[in-house]
Design a binder for these strands. Structure first.
Lengths: 144, 144
DNA sequence: TTTAAACAGGATAAATTTATCCGAAATAAA
DNA sequence: TTTATTTCGGATAAATTTATCCTGTTTAAA
């Protein structure tokens, strides 16, 4: 569904969000450990999220990553997916046609439109705060 | 969503189905041309579909690929996707956790379950005959 | 029986994705 | 100011996916 990079990105963002919600900044090392991802690769992904202003990075001692708390409810999964994988997953044609649309549909166009739309809606309405709260309360988990 | 190989596989299967429905056998060359795919790579994918008894291959002059007509309504998109990409796309966890389930859900488990289920249902209820008929009638298209 | 058409499948190459390494830059604390 | 910590970002490597090539086998027709 999503690329590995995107999966790491989603997990990392949720972990950072859960901590930022408590005023805690977290380091790359801590993130990689908690979401069970390769450290250096995760660094690359966090750089993308930082460039896109999804997370804030701070260098030096006691540095790390955080998300401004007022942003927690305005960053949606779609923002993260779009930054890393692009939006083809919920916009493109199911069988990869360049020119697939209502007037010129591929054979599975109508069926896939529903799935893709429900995916898009989900990603565009799920923000980091709700995910972070679930993790924090122990309702859901980020690893194993 | 699907791998390139799987996209080619779906298109090829629909094209073969549309022709088999009219009693016509089609060659690799003809398939690749009509679905706009690389010939040698498409051959590999058709080998997979042949091994899985989804399509029948015939060697030699006038050979090619066909699908037994009685099978057209019993081969579903899920069979093709499963043969090429496996079923992780509509069974696995959205963020790649090994042990994600109701009792131990990832943060996006519930939301994704719906999308994945609708995808699974779609793939498991759409058979080749209906797709082939749409292509044949000009209601939908396989390329460009 | 010879020939040409067509798929099978192993080997290899190209492209992309995933992952690692390392020096540079920034920053807070000693 | 020095030092230790931590992210940044370029280079490189490993793994996977996508794509090509070539030889062998099958088959029908000449």
């Amino acid at each position: 569904m999503f690329s590995k990079a995107c999966e790491y990105g989603i997990k990392a963002a949720i972990y950072i969000a859960a901590n930022s919600n408590e005023g805690k900044r977290v380091s790359l090392k801590g993130i990689a450990k908690h979401i069970d991802s390769p450290e250096a690769f995760t660094a690359k992904i966090l750089q993308i999220l930082a460039r896109e202003n999804i997370v804030t990075s701070v260098r030096g001692i006691n540095g790390g990553f955080e998300i401004e708390s007022h942003k927690l409810e305005t960053i949606f999964l779609s923002d993260i997916v779009k930054a890393i994988d692009g939006d083809n997953i919920y916009k493109g044609c199911g069988i990869g046609l360049k020119d697939c649309n209502e007037l010129h549909p591929c054979p599975i166009h109508d069926d896939f439109k529903k799935v893709r739309n429900s995916l898009r809606k989900l990603l565009e309405t799920t923000h980091l705060k709700q995910l972070a709260l679930n993790v924090h309360s122990g309702t859901s988990f980020l690893r194993v």
